[in-house]
Design a binder for these strands. Structure first.
Length: 199
DNA sequence: TTCCCGATTTACT
DNA sequence: GTAAATCGGGAAA
């Protein structure tokens, strides 16, 4: 199957919502200590810059943590949540526009065994934003890293996920964002479609 | 410097 | 279904 690394233009063209949907079906890889792990992106969420109350950069907030989101699209924004879980985001848009897509779930493809080890033998390897970061060994070390680097990258394949196979719903765990919590910016691939991608 | 709380996961009642 | 784990960011003082 044909497979190539996504060009950086992918991350700077179109709205963050559009890019969040286009990332579905792409394949995320990480390389840590020589071990390559990765999987198909199945679930994403868009975080839309300074007007989105759920976004860390809401209101133009610019701090040590959020400065990564202000970089040009095509880098990783990784931060620690609840003091124990890392969250991986893909920064989008041009420099100065703080938008990002949270990667919430993958379908494991490569490096199953090391991922199982990192997950301490648990059955769920890559379902959940904190979970997949643990499986792929992604930490704040990767914050600001290019998505075309040797240790972190995203590939596209010769298929495309049609709109009818994308489920849309409100984002998760952001009740604090009030009315913005209702925005349907959570996207995921229909379960049965994923298995057909593997054939 | 203090204090509150989070884009979650897991174990347990 | 509920609660604990755990710590750094961000706002206020």
């Amino acid at each position: 199957m044909n497979s190539k690394i996504l060009p950086l233009e992918f991350y700077t063209q179109g709205s963050v919502v559009t890019i969040a949907k286009k990332l579905l079906g792409k394949v995320l890889f990480s390389k840590n200590k020589g071990i390559v792990t990765g999987g198909i992106i199945c679930e994403t969420e868009a975080y839309g810059g300074i007007t989105d109350k759920a976004c860390h950069a809401y209101g133009g907030r610019y701090t040590k943590r959020t400065e990564t989101m202000y970089l040009q699209g095509g880098v990783a924004y990784v931060y620690l949540c609840y003091g124990m879980h890392h969250m991986l985001n893909v920064v989008t848009n041009i420099e100065g526009s703080p938008e990002a897509v949270l990667i919430r779930a993958l379908h494991p493809l490569r490096g199953i065994s090391p991922m199982q080890k990192r997950r301490n033998g648990r059955k769920n390897l890559t379902d959940g934003p904190g979970t997949l970061c643990q499986a792929l060994a992604i930490t704040k070390q990767e914050n600001g890293l290019s998505l075309k680097s040797k240790s972190l990258w995203i590939e596209y394949r010769d298929y495309k996920i049609p709109t009818k196979d994308i489920l849309t719903s409100p984002r998760i765990g952001i009740d604090f964002a009030k009315e913005d919590a209702l925005k349907p910016w959570h996207f995921r691939i229909k379960r049965q479609i994923i298995t057909s991608l593997l054939s």
